[in-house]
């Protein structure tokens, strides 16, 4: 791993929230590298700053201090328009509650990132159907989210995160709403279809049952990364 491309590089990342006259320090100087081809899990107790960190990494939240480079791009100093374009092209999202648009079919949901990247609706739909086939939902492309089980909805969300070929996929508790077996299947799928040597996966989770899927686990506590364990044995 030592020679792999660094997908995400965080150095001294700090973030403080101001809320009702009280300051809450969420990140206290995070130093972390995530490599391409690596599935990293951010773990730790509630409120330790995991979600804040992936929000910064995904470019949807600005840190107050420090450097966060994603595939060499410093998102903090990017213009808003460039940051939007970067996010649309390079980052895929998988959420705990799936966050599918309820009035769109599975294929339409999956096609959104393509449309946001300027691809025509017809082409985007065709590509969405292909990706849905890869995640085992070839028969459900026309189904609404309400017609799908939790596991199927999460597979649609994975397809949506993958469809435009992003370099980084961030997942927030992707298995916490699923039973053990379905959670394992979703993780299998994520590893199979989402991970390749040019892409990194960052997963925030509490779910110890899926730690076995990680290439690297970053343990967080009180806004700091306290331990990083890689499956290769490095730390």
């Amino acid at each position: 791993m030592g020679t792999a491309t660094v997908a995400v590089e965080c150095r001294g990342v700090r973030k403080t929230y101001d809320g009702s006259g009280q300051q809450v320090v969420a990140l206290r100087g995070i130093d972390l590298d995530i490599h391409a081809g690596e599935l990293m899990m951010l773990v730790g107790p509630s409120g330790c700053g995991k979600t804040t960190l992936i929000s910064v990494i995904a470019g949807i939240l600005d840190q107050d201090e420090g450097l966060c480079r994603v595939f060499g791009h410093d998102l903090l100093h990017m213009k808003d328009k460039d940051k939007l374009r970067f996010r649309a092209a390079n980052i895929g999202f998988v959420f705990q509650t799936y966050n599918l648009l309820p009035s769109l079919t599975a294929a339409e949901n999956v096609s959104i990132p393509m449309i946001l990247n300027g691809i025509s609706r017809q082409k985007a739909q065709r590509r969405a159907v292909e990706v849905l086939e890869r995640v085992g939902l070839a028969e459900r492309t026309g189904s609404l989210p309400s017609e799908l089980s939790g596991g199927q909805q999460q597979r649609v969300a994975i397809a949506r995160a993958l469809v435009h070929g992003p370099k980084l996929i961030v997942c927030d508790e992707p298995t916490s709403a699923l039973d053990h077996e379905t959670g394992h299947r979703v993780m299998d799928l994520l590893k199979q279809v989402a991970l390749d040597e040019d892409r990194a996966l960052v997963i925030v989770t509490h779910d110890a049952r899926i730690f076995e899927f990680a290439d690297c686990i970053a343990q967080m506590d009180d806004g700091q990364v306290v331990k990083v364990v890689r499956s290769s044995g490095q730390s």
Binding site: D80, R87, F93, F95, I112, P113, L116
Partner: peptide
């Protein structure tokens, strides 16, 4: 609002 948030996260600008 959450759906709009998702779209925003995925790269939809305020103009869109």
């Amino acid at each position: 609002i959450r759906q709009f948030g998702v779209l925003k996260a995925m790269g939809a600008g305020n103009g869109t």
